[in-house]
Simulated assay, not measured.
Amino acid sequence: MSADATHLLQKNLELVKTTDPEVTRRVWLNNKSHFACNLSDEVWLAKAALRTGLDLGPGVEHKIWVLVPRGRGNDPSAILSAVHTYERAGLMTVATKVSDHTNSAQEDSTGTGNSRVALKNIVIVYVLLVFTPVEHRKRGYARTMLKMLKEQLEQQTDPAVELSFLFSSVGRDFYEPAGWPAVRSRELVLNVQDHVFPELSMDTATNSWQLEDITEANLQVVMDRDIELLRAEMQDRTLKAHGNCQLAAIVPEARIFRGQLAVTHFTHQRVLNIEKPIIRTGVRLNAANGGDAFIIWAYHISYKILLVLRTRYETVGQLQCLLKEAVQEAREWGLARVAVWDLKDEDAHEAAGVSNRDRTVAWSCIGQLGRDTDTGARRGPVDLMLNEGYIWGL
């Protein structure tokens, strides 16, 4: 679509953040026709109510946006396209000189000499469930809506938004014209039935570690430590790059994992009629000899996949130990595959004996907002770390 045609569309349309219950209901039912056509309206709307009503604490807000002809934001029949957003807590590195370290938005800093790296809390918006009804397709509505959403996010001040992201399953290039170019997205896929792990050297032997289940009781402790280590890693990487990179990460908060687990419970009980209880959401290695290594997963029964949401390890041996436990969990649930997103290529191959591959669906697309929200200055590209499964879902 030409720039003039896009401008004309935007002139006659508006993007509305809806709070109208009938418009919200229509958006969810439109989503159902594509994402869950086999479910009854009752079950799908109950799941939608759970997803939009989860109490994920301050800073996580679910919004529904509709593209409509101007003045018809409260008319369910006028929806041309729609999109959902979640505001997620994030961190960003800021390289500073010692004399510059006065910004109250920066939480803490580390460094040597005159160079320091500070961290500040930011908001990162997750864009999802982009959908245009069949009768309105091939008219440029979705891309027009996304461009308008990008403008909305750039203008938002309470809270200000630093980055946004989405996942594309309709091709790597679909979202780029609207401002969300795809980044390389990798995955390790293990076939549960016949996978054989390679023997490791004595230096990376996996037999000495004791495993502890991750459950609701200790999830908060595990994630608090993970966040502490993440903060140190971000600062260290930026210092080693002499401040010539800027990193951001979506915080792996326990409340997000709990939200994903709540949706999984609903799906098992109301959609799949599975009575088997979920005993654990992952495992961690005994702290005495396994450090801070852990793995957290989610069950995607309909797709026969155990998706690893987040993992931390220090050695390839630790990684192999965690992956073996994930494969065993998948077997116990009758799943066919274990999928892990964005492991280092060399670690994946050494620990699992197979290589990462480019994802064919769920390509990560990162929307870079053009200006720093503190200074207003133009900003270079930001590297979004931790392109793992936990940033997807809900």
Score class of each variant (00 low, 15 high):
225 R>I: 02
38 N>G: 05
179 G>M: 00
174 F>V: 15
97 K>W: 05
236 D>Y: 13
364 S>P: 08
243 G>N: 03
242 H>K: 14
30 N>A: 04
138 K>Q: 15
124 I>Y: 07
196 V>N: 02
14 E>R: 02
285 L>E: 02
217 A>G: 07
133 P>E: 09
56 L>T: 08
314 E>Q: 15
20 D>V: 00
22 E>N: 13
63 K>A: 06
270 R>I: 00
193 Q>Y: 06
147 K>N: 08
333 W>M: 01
56 L>H: 05
49 A>P: 00
283 V>E: 09
108 D>G: 02
262 A>C: 08
292 D>S: 11
101 H>T: 08
54 L>G: 05
44 W>Y: 15
107 E>Y: 14
79 I>F: 09
12 N>Q: 08
3 A>E: 14
37 C>M: 03
301 I>F: 11
246 Q>K: 11
17 K>W: 05
15 L>P: 03
48 A>Q: 13
337 R>Y: 11
239 L>N: 00
6 T>A: 10
248 A>M: 01
26 R>W: 09
109 S>H: 04
178 A>H: 01
333 W>E: 00
341 W>H: 02
362 A>T: 10
303 Y>P: 00
2 S>A: 09
58 P>N: 12
110 T>N: 02
219 L>I: 10
365 C>Y: 11
186 R>F: 09
195 H>Q: 14
34 H>G: 03
45 L>M: 15
306 L>G: 04
155 Q>V: 04
